[in-house]
Amino acid sequence: MLRYILHRLLMTVPTALLVALAVFVLLRLVPGDPAQLMLGDTATEETLAELRAQLGLDQPIAMQFLYWLGNVAVGDLGRSITNDLPVLPLIFDRFQVSASIVIVAVVLATLVAVPAGMLAAWRQNSLGDLLIVGGATMLLSIPSFWLGLLMLLFFGVKLGWLPVVGYVSFGEDFGRALAYVILPIATLTLIEIGVITRMARAATIEVLRLEYITHARAKGVPEGRVLWRHALPNAFAPTWTLLGLILGNLLGGIAVIETVFTLPGLGRLLVDGIFARDYPVVQGCLLFVAIMYVLVNLLVDLLYPVFDPRVAAE
């Protein structure tokens, strides 16, 4: 068990380094001189040279990477070109908005989808199964940003219950803040219900055909307990892995939802950075999200033996 944890922890280090290298290389592929891009066409030759020296651009590329990596290690992701603020605090600030929406949505979706998927699997091919699978496939096929627009159209424009544009942080006014995040959370929850329900159903069907389920029934275990105690832990294991992927995917694609609902989140920071050619911000956001994703998967793997004790013993 301890071996498994140590092994998994150590495996994360090279992955994180390679991810950092990939981000570094990617941004170096940008055509043109970074100093020129940062300072604009009006910059003089001296200021350019000064900035190059400051950024370490006159060093060989490997040295530049190490230099950058060193800075990243102490939490220095550089300063934004647009507003000269340090990038890391900017990212943390925006990350809170994105993370709260994504995490709440995934938790809610899991709470609905896992029981629904298990129920559908338990009565495979019944009318209920057909409806649940049909509904899930429907939800799976709706683009999140369109569902968001429809929600805004209905609850914001037609009914006028919720605000259409804007954001208030929870620190300022909890009630009003809630009004701004209800729709984005509802949108993401509905979309993810589709994915998770299908996964939970498929996994439960796999598990329910196994002999240990029949063994449990042959001991006189009631159906509810068969599902809850015998099928759930085994069927939840693959779903648990999926949750890590979903969390990462949502974080990676959160920009579209933030655009629909005009939320000041991490995704919007990245996209605005791309438009403004604010490369320190773009670099910082890419690195941050990728590392978060690696960490989420690490956490998922570390908790996996709870559902499947075989893994830690391998």
Partner: peptide
């Protein structure tokens, strides 16, 4: 596989976003 797993560590459309930036 090391290169591949590194690319897989960029979730969803993040890698595409980064590439589009370039």
């Amino acid at each position: 596989m090391a290169v591949n797993d590194t690319l897989l560590a960029f979730p969803g459309i993040l890698l595409a976003l980064g590439l589009m930036a370039v």
